[in-house]
Design a protein around this nucleic acid. Structure first.
Lengths: 206, 206
DNA sequence: GCAGACATGTAAAGCGTTACATGATTCT
DNA sequence: AGAATCATGTAACGCTTTACATGTCTGC
């Protein structure tokens, strides 16, 4: 039931089309949610049928016509109801961490290569996110836009950046760990003292 | 296609039943994946049909009989094939961050209450995770278990703990942020200088 | 006596992704 | 000439969750 409430949330302070909403899901909102147009359009139709949003048709020339949605009072109270409900802690699904977990099945070089590939992509993502936040902040300043949503959005995005940064650092650290544990990968065995030392270093890294 | 490979990964160094695997999904593995028995059992059946795993029936008294699965050579090479493939960056879906993003629709007190509720649950989770890691490390030491999987598992788990800790700290920080921005919540307006200052503090928190 | 651990499954409903379908305008 | 942007949708398929179904033993 989260896409539903995500749509209501976005429409709670913004008149938008399905297409507009998709842009947000690919931009700012992507740090905590995403969705496809083929899911968004039917969900908007359902929300309108339930009376939580209503639409008006904008005829355009040169571009296809579009439907702009706004939230109704019913929709707003449904949103507030959802916001007031304590949410269960998010359950993580992370295919890359899962891959990492099983990488004892690969050679040391292959393992490090995989971590490096991830690291590069992650670094690019972080750079883009930093640029995006800087740009947003600049635009907020320029327009002197004092809004609650703007403040929270910054806090949420800053947190997302920190998360991604931590993940990047982990990928770097773990490459060094595998490098140090090379004998274990190469021969399947290792001096217990060194092993213990590595475990301790992992434990102390936080 | 990730549950499939998760099952192969777990069976790659362990003979286990569907029920055993579910225990792992609720324990250690839960930091990066989870699943239900009603999904695990059919998937195991499919994997066996595809020749990636094979089973033997253990007859038990007092308990229901159980099927223990082991990985086949085909299964192992399928796993390695998957492990060697670079995975796309994980896309986050986090209903609580989404709620937070829209909390400008609640009062300052309600917003802080929601963050506090999350904080408490998150604190409990972290405490449990710390205890779990300490226990694992103790058991590893006791059994002098020198294994690649053990080393990676520790690194993965330590990272998961850091992630959760960061999230907890964010919830604490954000409560303070809302507190400082109370005029914005209460009256809808705020001194631009103070607002800018808050934005800068969010930006500098990382 | 009842809850929980052990153990395996099926069925239905809900959620999410990918592919298909259309069509004008603008940019490279 | 071909790709990208704007704009809305349907259909098929796959993945995930929740509910249903069964039955013994152990501990409170």
């Amino acid at each position: 039931m989260s896409l539903r409430h995500g749509l209501l949330g976005l429409l709670s302070d913004w008149e938008a089309s399905g297409y507009d909403i998709k842009q947000e899901f690919d931009g700012f909102v992507s740090v905590f949610w995403h969705s496809n147009l083929s899911q968004i359009y039917p969900e908007l139709t359902k929300l309108e049928q339930d009376g939580f949003i209503k639409s008006r048709l904008i005829e355009q020339t040169g571009k296809p016509d579009k439907k702009l949605y706004t939230i109704t009072n019913d929709g707003k109270s449904e949103l507030v109801k959802w916001l007031s409900k304590p949410s269960t802690l998010p359950k993580r699904k992370d295919a890359f961490l899962m891959q990492s977990f099983f990488m004892d099945q690969l050679s040391a070089d292959e393992t490090i290569f995989q971590l490096q590939t991830f690291q590069k992509q992650q670094q690019e993502k972080l750079t883009a996110m930093n640029a995006f936040l800087a740009e947003s902040l600049a635009s907020i300043r320029e327009r002197r836009q004092v809004k609650k949503r703007v403040l929270i959005a910054s806090a949420v995005y800053a947190h997302a950046i920190q998360q991604e940064k931590l993940y990047l650092e982990w990928a770097e650290q773990t490459q060094r760990l595998i490098e140090q544990a090379r004998p274990l990968w190469e021969t399947g065995e290792m001096d217990y003292e060194l092993f213990e030392q590595l475990l301790v270093s992992v434990h102390n890294s936080f």
